[in-house]
Amino acid sequence: MKTTNDQFYIEKVLKGDANAFAFLVDSYKKMIFTLAFKMTKNREEAEEICQDAFIKAYQNLNKFQGDSKFSTWLYSIAYNVSLDAIKKNKKHNNTLEINEINYHKIASFDTALQQIEQKERAKIMDNCLLKLPEDERSIIWMFYYDELSLKEICEITLLSESNVKVKLHRARKRLLNIVETTFEPEIISHYGKS
């Protein structure tokens, strides 16, 4: 449904109705802004990236073939603009070691998180996510939040499928490590026992 709607507005824009583009912007601005924010961790920068991405999309709309979804195409533009911005100010790099994860740890994190109110929990998880290295953060976001397929992620990031899988695998583990360090160890051990 959404794809046919997109096509309708795309054709309108191509016929010269620039205002029709506003509908596309409204449909995707949150999705694009969130990706840019997750990648750069900076609101102003994310907003700028988001604007640049939409302007690029507008200027190249005639090149959109319709082979992939419009959202995927737009996502790949935003992803590349974000990468360029990150390369410009190389301050985002942070690497964390990956430690061993076991069933017991997962269960205890789960129990601990369940005790917290949902809104608060979402905030904590968001902060944990932002601590991941940028490349893993964007991929894990696309995969779990936007529910993009591996194929679509490959299309956006221009990485091979095996590479995306490895990054996802690492990102998940690292995320759990971050959750572990975020919580006070006593709380985890307390809930873990119950």
């Binding site: 949150k30 999705m31 994310a46 907003e47 929990r121 979402a122 998880m125 968001d126 996510l129 759990l176």
Partner: peptide
């Protein structure tokens, strides 16, 4: 675990 909790994160809005 990742799927369950990442899905709960709220989407950001631009200005």
């Amino acid at each position: 675990f990742a799927s369950k909790y990442i899905k709960e994160i709220e989407i950001e809005s631009p200005s």
